[in-house]
Amino acid sequence: PESADLRALAKHLYESYLKYFPLTKAKARAILSGKTSDSSPFVIHDMRSLSEGEQFINCRQIPPSLANQQQSDCGLLHPGDSAEEVEVRFFQRCQSRSAEAVREVTEFAKSIPGFMELDLNDQVTLLKYGVIEVLIIMMAPLMNKDGTLIAYGQIFMTREFLKSLRKPFCQMMEPKFEFSVKFNMLEMDDSDMALFLAVIILSGDRPGLLNVKPIEDLQETVLHSLELQLKMNHPDSLQLFAKVLQKMTDLRQLVSDHVHFIQLLKKTEVDICLHPLLQEIIRDLY
């Protein structure tokens, strides 16, 4: 009976993962390997294709109600733009997508059984500290050694192009590529990922938590469910559960470096304003 409960929990979390996260690992891997009936992603590999890619996203993502109104501005392609302006605008776009992703992760967290019964301040703390870790894990399936899918899988941006940007933009994604290439070798699927994300969110050692015990109890149940899931789903992968948990240590370092880069950007780039939601998360984080 106990393992039936753990399986039910895994199924529930997988269903809410599919509900709240539009681009699954299965879909991303199909796009990356060309095994999808959809058209291939648009490739951004230099400043010119970045400008063209911007136009591509703007034209495809505008809701029909706004399309006419914004058509003249479609693409925001300003021919005289300097590389600096294009980089800053791209960064702002990443921020908007990240803020939207925080909303998706929040909805997923709310669907974890017991999460909404936790103290509201603790729910905030768990999200504040967990959300960037979750976003980095969710980025992994979108990446391979050569680049990453962005804009819901519509665009592939090359790793070399990201490395060619000026500092610190060029330094921001490289650590995520290094992590993702190793993480992808564990070959977790979407149903494994759903449980792992819940484990990350339910970390009882986040600074400032008021009531740790119920969080640890919830995490323990999800951990049991993840352990069982990995044994059943990957019977030949020895010690996979331990290997997955070890990734949580790397994640904390990645987040602290990421926050450092953003603080650096805030100081050095006068044109950059941080999204208010991301500001809330990053302020006094580490």
Binding site: V102, R103, K110, L120, V124, H275, E280
Partner: peptide, 20 residues
């Protein structure tokens, strides 16, 4: 609470827009 008002709102209401 003031420091994290958007997170609070997101937790209490799923329709809160984030693109402010």
């Amino acid at each position: 609470k003031e420091k994290h008002k958007i997170l609070h709102r997101l937790l209490q209401n799923s329709t809160t827009p984030v693109d402010l």
